[in-house]
Amino acid sequence: ATAAASATTEFDFKSYMGERAASVNRALDAAIPAGDPPAALHEAMRYALLAGGKRVRPALCLAACGIAGGREAWAMPPAAAVEMVHTMSLVHDDLPCMDDDDLRRGKPTCHVVFGEPIAVLAGDALLSLAFRHMASVDSYPPDVDPEKHPARVVRAIGELARCIGSEGLVAGQVVDLEMTGSTETVPLERLEYIHLHKTAALLEASVVVDDILDVTKSSEELGKTAGKDLASDKTTYPKLLGLDKSREFAEKLLCDATEQLEGFDKEKAAPLLHLANYIAYRQN
């Protein structure tokens, strides 16, 4: 028990995340071979997908597989798929007909570099690749359980598809669009709905922090256009609740997330616990 406790306190979150990001990046790089025809379309997909980012979502996926007793390598294809889907939603969100953003992660957005139609296509192709990559047997290491693996992956694909569809991610984007520029005061439940759907569960805290950072940090620190949300009259947590109340809200969400981990083995839960803390308290 002492060993487990000290393992938890000594858990090196920074190198844990660094290693995960590196292995996720390798998987993403391998999933879209450079130069395959049509080369320009694959280049646009790679540009958006390999632009950096902390890979928090895939890390969550890998850590959740670990806490459930699996090998992290078994969860790499779904982890990569989650990042592909996330990237696709960013590429489409940034389009001129949507949020019209020129910068993402400190770089010109996909449509600025490749043009609008290619950005739409690259997003669509990333979405397809996510599901193809996750469904293909070739994506997985050979030591997955041949009996249980197909059923597990089918379930995971059903889950991912449901989370990003018209009652998940897209629902959040729709309500977000409908609220942007609206003069009526947006009720808190409405905003929660947007973020709950755009990110779901544990990552809701991440979005609250995103909104706080959006007001207080400059463009360079954020890698995206600062104050953009307020400038476009988009409703955010800080605008609605004030900065202090938003931080309190983030803390409450962190508590909720931490409670969910109480039933698990302490050592195995350490990565997820640190991830939750990281998401709630990060500065950029």
């Binding site: 694959h42 690749l129 197909p150 992956v153």
Partner: peptide, 25 residues
């Protein structure tokens, strides 16, 4: 389940970057 996975992979392939999206491109 294994057949269903192949179907899902095939559906995603057909509309992906080497399928229909390649044609649109």
């Amino acid at each position: 389940h294994a057949v269903l996975l192949r179907v899902l992979s095939e559906l995603a392939r057909a509309v992906g970057s080497t399928g229909m999206a390649a044609g649109q491109f």
